[in-house]
Amino acid sequence: MYNQNLKNKYNALFNIVQRLKEKKEQAQPQKEKTTIPSNLNPVEQEELQKQIDQQAYQWLVQQHQPRTTWLRNTILAFLVGGIICTLGQIIQNYFRGFGLTLREAGTVTVFIMVFLGAFLTGLGIYDKIGKYGGAGSIIPITGFANSIVASAMEFKREGYVYGVGARLFNVAGPVLTFGFIISVLIGLLYYFFT
């Protein structure tokens, strides 16, 4: 089943790989064992064998990886995201108190939140918030501001054209691209179905 090529690739690890597969089978006897069909050509057989071996190692890796603290992360993201959104709401209500319409107050709030995100990035605080907040600090508009300002700061040393100009949207680029695509699609749906 093993051709010499694959054996050479494992070098001194060959026995370990075999033992890993045995161990994995013992630990998960209920799982169906993948067999290699004999009608495959040698290259395909090698590829499949390699996949089986790699899965055995990945199984071992999973047992030794620290568990991701999903609950803690979710709660922190909820709290951080919630605080940012509450702050936005307070600002919006404040401006509505001056008699601005909902739309006008919203626009002003966006300005202020983007400024705050950018400002905290410049002070080197937003990345520390992001470390704990995760998605809670990435998804609000402050996170968008963070991604642009962080890129601007990072690439300023390569000059304003090839640095800041070219790479400003290094991180935020995909958000814009897919944001535009989705908005075009929704626009088309709106056009045809109303």
């Binding site: 603290t69 990345d127 918030i129 992001g130 470390k131 998605a135 990435i138 991604s147 990072e154």
Partner: peptide
């Protein structure tokens, strides 16, 4: 960090491993 991952001031959550 800037070559392999993200800008340094980017607020990202790093996995535990």
């Amino acid at each position: 960090e800037r070559q392999f991952r993200f800008p340094t001031e980017q607020g990202v959550h790093r996995p535990l491993w």
